[in-house]
Amino acid sequence: MKKIITPKDIFRQLKADLIGKDSYRGVTLTYTWLANQFGHFSLGFIPTFVVFLILKKHIPESRAALNAALGVSMAWLVFETYNFLGPLLSDKARKRYVFQPAWGNIAFDTITDLLYFWSGAFMASILCGYTPTALSILLILTAMVLYPAYYWYLTKMYLQTPSYPFQFRLSQWNTESLPQKDIDEIRRFLDNKGHGMHLFLFGPKRSGKTSLSVGIATELSIRHHTAVYTSAMKLYCMFFEHDDATSADVLWTWRKASILVIDDINPGDPIKHDLITPDQFLSFVDTFSTNDINRTVLRQTNVIWVLGDDDRLSERWKDMLLNIGVEKEKLISLNLQPYAPPMIRGEYDLHMQS
């Protein structure tokens, strides 16, 4: 059975984020999200307080406090609307994407930010000069922010558990060297509703195999799929591990994941020979397996295989999976060309940090 994140897991993670010092344990994505939202709250609170100090010299304090909150809230609404609609309505900005950003997801992220901006503004308004109107608005905003807070905190848990080597959204992939047929195959893998889809990525050094695999898996993590990123060498050791040893940092093992990324199976150019053949890989699967559990998991899991640069061997890898029961129509093979994948930095591609 594939793992899902439970309310107990969320509470355990929240407790870990709120109690203790990050100076000696590192910072998680969930902790970063909490700190970021506190920053948004503060960016509503502090400007409202400053504007209130200016307005109270000219109008009554209660009115000054309410007007300050309304003014700051309107300013953030204008800023975020421009920030969101600018690239969305720009043909030039849209055309630079090989894979379009998840605009609906970004819109939801923008709305979440606004709720925290506005909450900070009206909290400051109440403290500076109480009015029933400000209190009513704050209570409404508090109720409205509950679901977004739950959704984004849960999403960060799905993103941090796989231990991706870096943060990379699929929309950051910006190269015209990817043929349309390959783009369509990647979308087919992403939109697959079933299990047991396998994507082989071949290509030499700097072809972007790892970046593409992380980008695809990241999109699925944001959709709340359980994922595991691992190198082939680590996976060989994981073949004989038990599934009952989990912690707050490792909520699921590779057998409980719905998407598995196996990186560095073979290095590719400049190393000319494949270090691991399909037969050798299958021998590792079977050596440490009991009751064919490893074969069953590989057959039923969506897997991204990051291989070397010789795609002539793709048929041998496909044959290995066909022999363990994977359906032929669920096998996809892509050969990437070398390039240096540029990063498109901005609100749209890195909103996962918000």
Score class of each variant (00 low, 15 high):
residue 349 D to K: 05
residue 81 T to F: 13
residue 227 A to G: 00
residue 30 T to M: 15
residue 323 N to E: 12
residue 126 I to A: 05
residue 138 L to K: 02
residue 91 D to N: 09
residue 212 L to E: 02
residue 329 E to G: 11
residue 170 L to G: 02
residue 50 V to G: 03
residue 124 A to T: 00
residue 92 K to A: 09
residue 164 Y to C: 04
residue 138 L to N: 02
residue 99 F to S: 03
residue 168 F to S: 08
residue 65 A to I: 04
residue 100 Q to A: 13
residue 80 E to K: 05
residue 299 R to G: 08
residue 266 N to I: 00
residue 87 P to Y: 03
residue 200 F to R: 01
residue 253 T to E: 01
residue 194 G to A: 10
residue 115 L to G: 03
residue 101 P to E: 05
residue 24 Y to T: 15
residue 238 M to G: 07
residue 131 T to A: 08
residue 251 L to H: 03
residue 288 F to M: 10
residue 181 K to E: 06
residue 3 K to C: 10
residue 312 R to W: 02
residue 286 D to V: 02
residue 125 S to D: 04
residue 48 T to F: 00
residue 82 Y to A: 13
residue 87 P to S: 02
residue 243 D to K: 04
residue 132 P to N: 06
residue 196 G to E: 15
residue 87 P to T: 08
residue 71 G to R: 03
residue 192 N to Q: 10
residue 111 I to A: 13
residue 144 M to E: 04
residue 41 F to N: 04
residue 36 N to F: 14
residue 92 K to C: 01
residue 319 D to A: 06
residue 89 L to C: 11
residue 174 N to K: 05
residue 313 L to M: 10
residue 312 R to Q: 08
residue 308 G to D: 07
residue 264 D to R: 07
residue 146 L to C: 11
residue 130 Y to Q: 02
residue 93 A to E: 15
residue 76 W to P: 00
residue 323 N to Y: 10
residue 269 D to C: 09
residue 152 W to V: 12
residue 218 T to D: 07
residue 16 A to L: 12
residue 103 W to G: 02
residue 107 A to G: 13
residue 142 T to G: 08
residue 146 L to V: 14
residue 324 I to S: 00
residue 166 F to A: 11
residue 284 F to D: 06
residue 262 I to Q: 04
residue 28 T to Q: 07
residue 17 D to V: 09
residue 308 G to T: 07
residue 25 R to P: 01
residue 292 D to M: 12
residue 117 F to L: 05
residue 57 K to G: 03
residue 215 G to A: 05
residue 262 I to L: 10
residue 274 D to N: 12
residue 354 S to F: 08
residue 353 Q to F: 15
residue 61 E to R: 12
residue 330 K to L: 15
residue 112 T to Q: 10
residue 288 F to D: 07
residue 116 Y to Q: 01
residue 42 S to M: 15
residue 144 M to Y: 05
residue 182 D to K: 04
residue 282 L to H: 06
residue 254 W to T: 03
residue 116 Y to S: 04
residue 190 L to C: 09
residue 281 F to S: 01
residue 199 L to I: 00
residue 306 V to I: 13
residue 290 T to Q: 13
residue 224 H to D: 08
residue 36 N to M: 14
residue 193 K to W: 07
residue 19 I to Y: 13
residue 172 Q to H: 07
residue 1 M to L: 14
residue 278 P to R: 01
residue 308 G to C: 10
residue 159 L to M: 04
residue 85 L to F: 07
residue 210 T to I: 06
residue 341 P to W: 07
residue 105 N to H: 13
residue 102 A to I: 11
residue 27 V to H: 12
residue 72 V to S: 00
residue 239 F to T: 05
residue 61 E to L: 10
residue 104 G to H: 11
residue 60 P to K: 07
residue 25 R to G: 06
residue 87 P to C: 08
residue 116 Y to I: 02
residue 23 S to M: 14
residue 146 L to A: 14
residue 51 V to I: 09
residue 222 I to W: 01
residue 18 L to M: 12
residue 118 W to Q: 08
residue 348 Y to S: 11
residue 157 M to L: 13
residue 195 H to V: 12
residue 183 I to K: 12
residue 54 I to R: 11
residue 328 K to S: 09
